[in-house]
Structure formats: C-alpha cells, structure tokens
Write a protein that binds this DNA or RNA. Sequence first.
DNA 1: CAGCAAGCTGACAGCGTTGTCAATATTAGC
DNA 2: GCTAATATTGACAACGCTGTCAGCTTGCTG
Lengths: 342, 342
Amino acid sequence: MNPRNTKATIFDVAERAGVSIKTVSRVVNNEPNVRERTRNRVLQSVRELSYQPNAAARELSGKRSRVIGLIYENAQEFGYLNDVFNGALGICEPAGYSLLLRPLTLPDSKITEHIRQFAINARLEGIVLPAPMGDLPEVLALLREMRIPFAAITPREPAPDEINILCNDEAASFSLTELLIGQGHQAIGFIKGHPDHGASAKRFAGYRHALKKNRFAYAAPLVRQGYFDFDSGRIAAGKLLDLAEPPSAILASNDDMAAGAIFEARERGLTIPGDLSVAGFDDTRFSSRIWPPLTTVRQPIIKMAETAAGLLIDKLNGSATKAPEAPFECEVVIRESTAHLT
Amino acid sequence: MNPRNTKATIFDVAERAGVSIKTVSRVVNNEPNVRERTRNRVLQSVRELSYQPNAAARELSGKRSRVIGLIYENAQEFGYLNDVFNGALGICEPAGYSLLLRPLTLPDSKITEHIRQFAINARLEGIVLPAPMGDLPEVLALLREMRIPFAAITPREPAPDEINILCNDEAASFSLTELLIGQGHQAIGFIKGHPDHGASAKRFAGYRHALKKNRFAYAAPLVRQGYFDFDSGRIAAGKLLDLAEPPSAILASNDDMAAGAIFEARERGLTIPGDLSVAGFDDTRFSSRIWPPLTTVRQPIIKMAETAAGLLIDKLNGSATKAPEAPFECEVVIRESTAHLT
DNA sequence: CAGCAAGCTGACAGCGTTGTCAATATTAGC
DNA sequence: GCTAATATTGACAACGCTGTCAGCTTGCTG
C-alpha cells in the first residue's frame, strides 16, 4: 500500500508512458515543446509511480543543486529563528529544495571565508539571510561577488533586483511610543538595539517620530545604547533609573532587553507596572510568561520567512520577478507590563 | 588567494598526483590497499587543490547519500533544540555529512508516513531523534523496519545495537528534591511531565526516591500531572496551592511549567521564594531571566547531541561500535527561586 | 629461483539525470 | 498538394564518482 523503500526512476516512467526519458524530463521540469496529450500521459505515469527525480543525478547532470543555505547568528533569540526555520522549511520542501543551516558566531572576522566555503561545499544556489545577517555589508558584498542570489529579512533599503523582506518596525515603534504617551507617561526612556542591526535604527526612528508628533522634547539622557541582550538591557535600564528624574516608562528595542529592564527594576524594589512601565519588541516565547506579561510588538516572522524563501525560489527557478512586497504589518501586543500613569 | 568559486575534481587530483582516479578515490575514502608513498602523494595533491569530493556524484555512484535527518517536535522548547542543532551540525559538517531538519507537529496520526516520505525523498542514511521523538514507539518501529540507523536522545532503555544518549535525569531530580528537603520543606509538590516523554518518568522517580530515602511519606495529592507547557504548569500549581495544606515548595518537571507555577503563585499574591519555593528542569534561556531566577537542572545538551551524531556517523561509516556511553551528568543550578523555609 | 599469494593499481561500466543536436511530425503558406 | 518553417521527440554524451574485476607488483615459500 505504501510506497516502498525504493523510488521509481525516470526510465520506469518513460516506459510506462511510452515515451523517451528525455520527454519525461521535459514534463517534469515544465519545459515547453511537449504536446498536451503527451504531457498528460507522462504526468499520469508520474503520479501512478509516485516518481520523484533523483536529486543527486539532477545536480550532477544539470547545474542545479536545489540547495538553499540559511545563515544565522548562533546566539540569536531562538523563537525568532524557530519561526524563520519553519517558514523557510515549509516552502522549500514542497518546492523540491533542501535547506541547509549554517550557524555563525558574531562577530566573526573570517565570516566571508566561512560563508564562501559553505556556499561552495554545499553548492548553494541561494541563501536566506535572517537579521542580522542581511545587515552585514561584507556578507552582502561577498554574495554579490559570488553571484549567489539571496533573500534578506531585515529593514534594509532593498537594492534593485535583490530580495528583501521587512516589516514596518518604525510604525510599530511609533505606535508603541504613542501608547505610552497616551497612558500619561511624560518621560519615556528608550533602549536602543545593537547598532549593526538595521532594525535598531528603525525602532529608534519610530520613537523619535512619536515624540516629535506629540510635541515632546527629545532628551538625550533618556536614550541609552543596548545590544539586544538581557544584560545590556539591564545595564541601560540601571542608568535610566539612576537619573535624577528617571522615566516612568521604558521602551526597549527587544524583549530580551525589556526583560533585563524588568529584572533591574525588580532588584531595586520597583513594581511593574506600578512604578515603571516597560515595553519590548519581538514577542518572544517568554514575553507572555514573565511576570508581568510584556507589552511588545509581534512580527509575522513565519510569513516573512515563507515569503523570503518563496521569492528566492522563484528567482532561482527563473520565474517572473514579483513586484516588491509591501512591508509586513507588525502588531502591538498590549499586556500588563505597561499601565496608565497614576 | 582564496579558492575560487569552482571546485577541483578527482581528475585534477589524479593528474597532479600521477595516479588513476580510482586510487584517489581509495585515498579519499580511507580504503586499504594503497601504498603509503602513493597515499601521501595523493593527500598532498588533495591539499594543494583543496579537493572536496562532489557529494552528488558520490551519492549517485555509491549508495551513500551522507545525509542525516533530524526530526524534532515543532512546539518544543527551543533552547533545547538550538543546542541539539548546534551539536549535531558541528559534528556533521566536518565529517562530510549534511543535516536535514524536519519539524513535526505532535500528536501526528500520520507521523510514520511523514517520516517515511522524508527518509525516502532525502535518501537519509541515518536519523537523529531528540526527545521526545525517541520516545515514540511507532517511530522506532518504522526506523527499524526501514533499517535506518538512528541515534535517540532520551532516557530510554537502549536496545542492543541501537544508539541512545541519555543523562542522569533521575539522579538530578533526586538531588533537587534533597536540596528542597535540606531547606526544610516538609511538603514538596511535584508537577509531572508529559507522559509520553521518557524523561517524565525518570524525573518523577528521582523525586520519589528522595522522599523515600528521607523517610517522607508519599502524598498523592502533592503530585499533579503536567504536559511540559507553561499553562499546564500553571494549572497544576493552582491545584497544589488550592490544597488545604499547600506545599511550601514545588518541583516542576521542566522550566516552562516552573514558570507557569511562578506565574500562578504571583497571581495569588504569593512571593517567590518567600511564600513558595519553585524549581524546574532544563535551564532554558529564560530560566535566569525571570524574576526570581530559577533553580533548575542543566543538561549538557550540546555534548549529548554531538555524541549522538558522532556515534551515528561512526555507525554509518562502519567504524567499530563504541562501548555504550555512560549517562551524561546533569548539573543542579541553584538560583533564587528556592530558599530555606523560615 | 620458480611459483603463488597477497598487495597494489587502473580500466571501465554504471548511477539517474539534463544538455545538445539531429530526426521526425505537424502546421502554415501559397 | 507541395515546400518551408516550426513544433515535438528521441539518441546519446556528459556530469564526477564508486564498484568490479583484471592486471601488474611485490614478497614469501620451499
């Protein structure tokens, strides 16, 4: 009943359909110049035999390896990567592509060499670059030089003919800031993200934009540099709370730093959100599990990864280039870590 | 300076070394019957040309695909999987194997069909089964039937000739329970893990063992069923706290459930660890980031995954079977969510 | 030093596809 | 209805490697 442990070959299909293997190849690869009747006959046999082309033979014969690489930062928040993996895998498999992972530890002075080796050894046809990989100029330069198509997921100005997936970080940051303003907060601290990440600038821009629109003066001491990790959030929050006039709300550029801020506030005996409102960005796995649950911004990562992989595969398959996608919509998730100023 | 975008073939190496391609093949595959001098000459050429065999040609010609699958539960705590991925990838790549990921959503009534298709399509030579995949009897049965070697990471009774990696869950659970007992807790609640996971039974056994050794009566109401997720931990903790004589400490079978327990306790106005000590299992990413930081147990997941992949590859390469590994050692990590009873 | 086994090496045929190009079938044009 | 042009099909050679097997070298035995 089940297909056995073996696979039908192109010969089996050809024989059953009464055509040459070359014709089967044409049908399977959607090439033109096959009569409709013939095509149907072949497709029928393909179905009956559950034929699937042998990837190794294909790669050896043609130039195509049908392998896509996914390069990611190892230390990265893993909920994000989980979604990226799932999105990309979900698209690659049905399309007949394999997805190969390559963790990288940043900073990495030999990063281009690592990627080059990876690309050559695995014979990659294309590469998916989740943030922050798409933010590294040397990586982009390398891939352009090697002429390997890639799809970056990052708020980058998309170069012509390059695939870039982004969401409206800035608008979400704007909304989140306005939410805090609407709650009566007058002094809102901001913890910036890692300067090498494209998202950092966008999120900061949204904050400034909201301040401006609401006629708040921009106060430099209320803005601190963080690096997207828990500890940097904790330290930055500490500095904000040390101010003579500390903020009543802190907006961190991601949830790890927001968790750090909450941790630091707790250590100082402050209650959240009574004494301090805290909001983050990303809606990671633990955002809803810490106490209090974190107000944050959710991105449709899975969809973004699916789109990235899909557009990349379209490009590799030589399909018509899709119109550049509009940014994906982020969603502000309001939980209990933020509250109206009493 | 850098190797170019192209790869040397076996012909290039053979020519340079002045031997036939077959001899190069022998050297590269570590086959016997090559004179030492010849072997060195070939290795020299291999090095000079940075030769790496073409995987597609190898697969097409020989029977070996050098592809290993990694099947995992999608919803899984991702810090665990991150470590598994990194461990396995770190071993596979240098050994010349590719690692293909396959997320699965449990429960899955068609799981065997999914795995079968995956194995056939990707021509898997072997499979790594992180928990809880190695706990599913139908999966094990399928792989045995298909004669695909696998390495399970789970506290399972290792069948002869099968690779199984485990750590001393039970001993760690025992220590953790004794820790709580040592802190003066008289009533210690326990939240069991998902019944389909092998680890659940082990962790529970450690708890019971510690009670027994310390001459504590086993009280059934203090033990609640959980399913390794946050919500089930929350619910189970709720039931424990509803008891007429609630426990002063709760040991949850993983950190997600421990986080749920803390959450629930907070909602009821209890302070941790003042009113209630809570401990978990796994040392996930957020264990040290919630407040208070969680007392838990850390497993050497990366090493376990490395060992699993390494033994599997050894088996595929036909190397001598290693002696069965001793269980890996877990480490109890004491943080602030547990305290002496005052 | 012949005779034989074991050690070493290479020629050659696949492996299952795709690319090339020639052969054949169909259609269009007049 | 015939020819030219075009659409469809197939024969065959790669692709880069491993398996098989035969041939050539050694080294050992008596």
